[in-house]
Design a protein around this nucleic acid. Structure first.
Lengths: 145, 145
DNA sequence: TATTGTTATACTCTATAACTATA
DNA sequence: TATAGTTATAGAGTATAACAATA
């Protein structure tokens, strides 16, 4: 996909779609056998950055429907990476938080799992890294809108 | 995810991963009932841009394993969007190409399917579009490496 | 033997619909 | 009634292993 083909909004949308789909595939394929999946990493990372929250809030952050998050959390809880507590005032809600093991996974094993992308980012010019930093912010605004 | 958290390569890798995962989810959820799926659109787009090619070449372009592409092509062939021809000199290979209907899908229905992203891209400042254009090139280089 | 592609199988990811419990 | 979450079910997406056909 060359620069010339992304001049129009439609062309840019198509090019961005292809790039995102392919990078997403690459990221999923970097899964180590003993490690957590890409979706699980995303949920753990959100908990690490934003602290404990309800399953519904986590689903909203991750842009998935609640039943999808239920399944992710069940897997994480089974592996002892998160725990569930009762909400102090609203018994419908649960509060999900990282365990010590879960925190360790996010801080260490997860970063090892990202080695592929991290290595490539280290290998590109600083100007390209600046482009990616700015693009992350633009994409996040688009996703939130 | 703020700019400050993406200063290191690891932080940038994590932020980019989260953004890509979430945008990918949004793109998949834009599927129209009567339309083709995101994976099918990606394959059709590649054929549209690069012309006819073998299933193996298409899998390499899309960064999927050959059996995954076999399944995608079977669905597209069943819907009459692509055809298979024999390779003139190597009978192991097939040549996949868009039908007239498939071309029409790529040019019209697929663009309608992208309305969500296209609309958002039209709504951001030109400077942000330039950022995305540059980021597409950087991401593509990373994916190819 | 090496390459191209398919078949068989299984797992991950995600959604919608229907349900339960609580507010 | 409305909200938070789960269960049931189904479909999309993808991989590895084993196979068939051809080079």
């Amino acid at each position: 996909m060359t620069r010339a083909e992304t001049r129009t909004s439609g062309g840019l949308a198509g090019a961005l779609r292809l790039s995102v789909v392919r990078l997403n595939r690459r990221l999923r394929s970097q899964r180590a056998d003993t490690s957590v999946t890409l979706t699980q990493v995303a949920a753990l990372s959100t908990l690490r950055h934003h602290g404990r929250m309800s399953p519904g809030a986590l689903a909203a952050h991750e842009k998935v429907q609640p039943p999808s998050m239920t399944r992710v959390l069940a897997a994480l809880e089974e592996r002892g990476l998160v725990t569930r507590r009762a909400h102090p005032h609203d018994r419908r809600q649960a509060i999900v938080e990282l365990t010590d093991v879960g925190t360790k996974i996010v801080d260490e094993e997860v970063r090892a799992r990202e080695a592929w992308l991290c290595q490539r980012i280290q290998g590109i010019p600083e100007q390209d890294r600046q482009t990616l930093r700015a693009a992350v912010e633009v994409i996040n605004r688009i996703v939130e809108s």
